[in-house]
Amino acid sequence: MAILVTGGLGYIGSHTVVELINNGFEVVIVDDLSNSERFILNNIEEITGKKPVFYPFDLRRKELLTQVFDAHRIDGCINFAASKAVGESQLKPVDYYENNLFSLINILQEFKKREISNLIFSSSCTVYGQADVMPIDENTPLKMPESVYGKTKQMGEEILIDFAKAYGRKVSLLRYFNPIGAHPSGKIGELPIGIPNNLVPYVMQTAAGIREKLSIWGDDYPTEDGTAVRDYIYVVDLAKAHVAALKKLMSDQSGETLIDTYNLGTGRGSSVLEVVKAFEKANAVEVPYQICERREGDITIAYADPAKAEKELGWKSETPLEESLRTTWEWQKYLNSRNS
């Protein structure tokens, strides 16, 4: 029983691969290494004792994807393959639409041709835009996202819903909030290429002296301390949710169309400054920062109501913020040792 994990050497993908292997699944990874590095594959093997099959190519190359499906009996797919930086997506919209949507369509063409089901889509809370009411549950109305990245996620969901309805397939749309942290082993974690676009990697690199100061994008939001509020979820907890969602899809024997949608978060919002202070406390380090103007595409506040995932998947996020941030620093120290 093989599960295709696209973007499987990336941040969330690599942690999900570990959890899949720990749950007895055979894993086939496709990753173009545009936002990951090959040594992660070896580290996955060190953590699990098993080395996944790995194909290094861009999913837009349909002929190579067909070869993977020819070579393996694929029983399902978890699709992480996407460009993900909100700020960059505003500067390179065409690149984001092409990469994030064409790769998904190519996977679905193979699923359609081979009558495969069980596809999990790495979606995002950005599909809600700036929600009017907190916390955000699955019945919260979708809005046009503020960023091109968010738009690609919303379009991807629509494509998958149409696919499932037209061909009677099973899909799960996982709308998660802000993943942070690293594996307890310290051997896999978020590995941004160039200047980080997400908060916690930038905090981590600033604490390590790689960046001079952390840029906080705006302190005039209508929040308690003026900085934007997000729901920060530990990446290993998030990875376990993917496995739970996959098991639910695969256990369904009704033969009917199944479209699951889950919000994955902690149910609690934390501001940017709260995260910075929690990181400093967890790791006994200082993070110098500067306040900058708001960044285009960012929203004010977003945090999840994860009750549906707990009820239907038996899953909930249990790792505290400070513990998540402690693992982040262990990952940075590992990277420092590799580069020394």
Rank of each mutant, 00 (worst) to 15 (best):
Ile47Lys: 10
Thr48Gly: 02
Gly49Gln: 05
Gly49Tyr: 02
Lys50Asn: 11
Lys50Ile: 01
Lys51Trp: 00
Lys51Met: 10
Pro52Asp: 12
Pro52Asn: 07
Val53Glu: 11
Val53Gly: 06
Phe54His: 12
Phe54Ile: 06
Tyr55Leu: 14
Pro56Val: 00
Pro56Gly: 08
Pro56Trp: 03
Phe57Asn: 10
Phe57Val: 07
Phe57Tyr: 01
Asp58Met: 08
Asp58Leu: 08
Leu59Asp: 14
Arg60Thr: 12
Arg60Ala: 07
Lys62Asp: 15
Lys62Ile: 15
Glu63Val: 07
Glu63Thr: 14
Leu64Asp: 15
Leu64Gly: 10
Leu65Thr: 08
Leu65Glu: 12
Thr66Asn: 09
Thr66Arg: 06
Thr66Lys: 01
Gln67Val: 07
Val68Asp: 07
Asp70Tyr: 11
Asp70Val: 14
Ala71Phe: 12
Ala71Glu: 11
Ala71Gln: 03
His72Phe: 13
His72Gly: 01
His72Met: 02
His72Ser: 01
Arg73Trp: 03
Arg73His: 02
Arg73Cys: 03
Ile74Leu: 01
Ile74Pro: 05
Asp75Asn: 15
Gly76Ser: 00
Gly76Glu: 11
Gly76Phe: 08
Cys77Asp: 06
Cys77Arg: 11
Cys77Asn: 04
Ile78Ser: 03
Ile78Gln: 05
Ile78Cys: 09
Asn79Leu: 01
Asn79Ile: 08
Phe80Cys: 05
Phe80Lys: 13
Phe80Trp: 00
Phe80Ser: 08
Ala81Gly: 13
Ala82Pro: 00
Ala82Asn: 06
Ala82Ser: 06
Ala82Cys: 05
Ser83Pro: 04
Ser83Val: 09
Ser83Arg: 15
Ser83Phe: 08
Lys84His: 13
Lys84Val: 10
Lys84Gln: 07
Ala85Leu: 13
Ala85Asp: 08
Ala85Trp: 03
Ala85Thr: 05
Val86His: 09
Gly87Lys: 15
Ser89Pro: 00
Gln90Met: 04
Leu91Ile: 09
Leu91Thr: 10
Leu91Trp: 09
Leu91Asn: 00
Lys92Trp: 14
Pro93His: 11
Pro93Leu: 12
Pro93Asn: 06
Pro93Phe: 15
Val94Arg: 13
Val94Glu: 14
Asp95Gly: 02
Asp95Cys: 11
Asp95Phe: 12
Tyr96Lys: 01
Tyr96Ala: 01
Tyr96Phe: 15
Tyr97Met: 10
Tyr97Leu: 13
Tyr97Gly: 02
Tyr97Asn: 00
Tyr97Val: 07
Glu98Ala: 06
Glu98Tyr: 11
Glu98Lys: 14
Asn99Thr: 05
Asn99Gln: 11
Asn100Gln: 10
Asn100Tyr: 09
Leu101His: 08
Leu101Asn: 12
Leu101Asp: 06
Phe102Cys: 05
Phe102Lys: 15
Phe102Ser: 04
Phe102Leu: 13
Ser103Arg: 11
Leu104Asp: 06
Asn106Phe: 03
Ile107Trp: 08
Ile107Asn: 15
Leu108Pro: 00
